[in-house]
Amino acid sequence: MPALSVLDLIPVRTDQTTGDALAATLSLARTADELGLVRYWLAEHHNMPAVASTNPPVLMAMIAAATQRIRVGSGGVMLPNHSPLVVAEQVALLEAAHPGRIDVGLGRAPGSDPVTGHLLRRGQTSDGVDTFPDDVATLHSLLRPAGVQVAVGARTYDLRATPVATTAAQVWLLGSSMYSAQLAGELGLPYVFAHHFAGRGTHEAIALYRRAFVPSDELPEPRTIAVANVVVAESADEAERLALPNARSMWRLRSGQSLTAQELVEDAEAAPPTPPMDELTQSWIVGDPQHAATEVARLAERLGTDELMVSPIAGAHRGGRPDRSPAREETLRLLAAALA
Score class of each variant (00 low, 15 high):
Ala268Glu: 14
Thr17His: 08
Val232Ser: 08
Leu242Val: 08
Val72Asn: 07
Ala3Tyr: 10
Thr166Val: 15
Ala96Asn: 05
Asp278Lys: 07
Pro133Asn: 01
Ala66Cys: 02
Val265Asp: 13
Ser83Trp: 04
Leu119Met: 03
Gly319Glu: 05
Leu9Cys: 01
Ala226His: 08
Asp113Val: 15
Val296Trp: 06
Ala297Gln: 10
Ser216Trp: 09
Arg321Phe: 03
Met178Pro: 01
Ala32His: 05
Leu85Asp: 03
Asn81Phe: 01
Leu187Ser: 00
Gly19Glu: 10
Thr31Pro: 00
Val164Cys: 09
Leu94Phe: 11
Ala169Tyr: 06
Tyr191Asp: 03
Thr167Trp: 09
Ala109Thr: 08
Val77Gly: 06
Ile63His: 03
Arg328Tyr: 08
Leu59Gln: 15
Gly199Leu: 07
Ala226Arg: 04
Glu204Cys: 07
Asp323Trp: 02
Ala337Lys: 11
Trp284Tyr: 15
Arg210Tyr: 09
Pro322Cys: 11
Met60Asn: 06
Ile102Asp: 12
Thr167Gly: 00
Leu264Ala: 06
Gln149Asp: 13
Glu295Ser: 04
Arg298Gln: 13
Asp158Trp: 10
Ser258Asn: 13
Ala292Asp: 12
Gln257Pro: 02
Ala92Leu: 14
Ala236Gly: 13
Thr54Glu: 05
Glu44Tyr: 10
Ile206Trp: 06
Gln90Ile: 02
Ser255Asp: 04
Ala292Phe: 14
Trp41Gln: 06
Val136Ala: 02
Arg144Ile: 09
Ser255Leu: 08
Glu240Pro: 00
Val232Glu: 10
Gly320Phe: 05
Ala194Glu: 09
Leu85Ser: 07
His291Ser: 11
Arg321Pro: 08
Ala338Cys: 10
Leu94His: 06
Asn47Ala: 12
His195Thr: 08
Arg328Gln: 13
Phe193Asn: 02
Ala137Gly: 02
Ser83Lys: 03
Ala137Ser: 08
Ala300Tyr: 04
Glu279Asp: 15
Thr202Ile: 08
His140Ala: 14
Val58Met: 15
Met277Arg: 11
Leu139Lys: 03
Leu259Asp: 01
Asp323Gln: 03
Val38Asp: 09
Gly19Arg: 11
Tyr191Ile: 01
Ala268Asn: 10
Val77Lys: 05
Ala154Asn: 11
Ala228Pro: 11
Val265Gln: 14
Ala268Tyr: 15
His45Ile: 09
Glu95His: 10
Arg211Trp: 00
Leu280Gln: 14
Pro326Cys: 07
Leu120Tyr: 01
Thr17Ala: 12
Ser112Met: 06
Gly73Lys: 09
Arg321Tyr: 05
Val164Met: 12
Ala66Arg: 06
Phe132Trp: 06
Pro322Phe: 15
Asp113Ile: 10
Val115Ile: 13
Ala316Leu: 02
Ser180Trp: 06
Leu173Lys: 01
Glu238Leu: 14
Ala184Val: 07
Leu28Glu: 09
Thr331Glu: 07
Pro245Tyr: 03
Ala300Met: 04
Glu95Leu: 13
Asp15Met: 00
Thr18Gly: 03
